[in-house]
């Protein structure tokens, strides 16, 4: 019973942690951003799972359906997706500038070059 009721959330937790692992462990800045993306997308999956109602259809009102999934998490995640891509774009722009001025996008190189001068 527990398994069928909650397996969804457990997989989502694993996805989140894979993303977070990339952000912490990887020294390559682009890989960090990809990790951040995976982390955020997994949180979106969690929210949408919360909004699921068994047997519910998409929340567009019609005569054919009586049960709908919860529209509120959908609205929240629409906003969160947009925030996510905004962050990604800004982060990548920063990476390009870092590459120009440090000549590398590896954290290790940047730290050694900063300590040299």
């Amino acid at each position: 019973m527990l398994l069928s009721a909650l397996y969804n959330y457990w997989v989502v937790v694993l996805l989140m942690m894979t993303g977070l692992y990339m952000v912490i462990a990887q020294g390559n800045l682009i890989k960090k951003i990809i990790g951040l993306n995976v982390f955020q997308t997994s949180v979106f999956i969690f929210y949408i799972s919360v909004g699921k109602v068994t047997g519910g259809s998409a929340p567009i009102l019609s005569q054919l359906a009586t049960v709908y999934s919860n529209p509120l998490p959908h609205v929240l995640i629409l906003t969160a997706i947009v925030v996510g891509i905004a962050t990604t774009a800004l982060a990548l722009a920063l990476v390009l500038r870092i590459r120009q001025s440090y000549g590398s996008v590896e954290e290790q190189d940047i730290l050694t070059r900063d300590s040299q001068c």
């Binding site: 951040l36 982390f39 949180v43 919360v50 998490p73 920063l94 990476v95």
Partner: peptide, 23 residues
């Protein structure tokens, strides 16, 4: 640039944690 990037990564992790909590 490097400080901004570090702050961006930490700040986004922080904001996403808050988002998980709100969820």
């Amino acid at each position: 640039l490097w400080s901004a990037f570090q702050y961006l990564v930490l700040g986004t992790i922080g904001a996403t944690f808050i988002l998980i909590g709100i969820g």
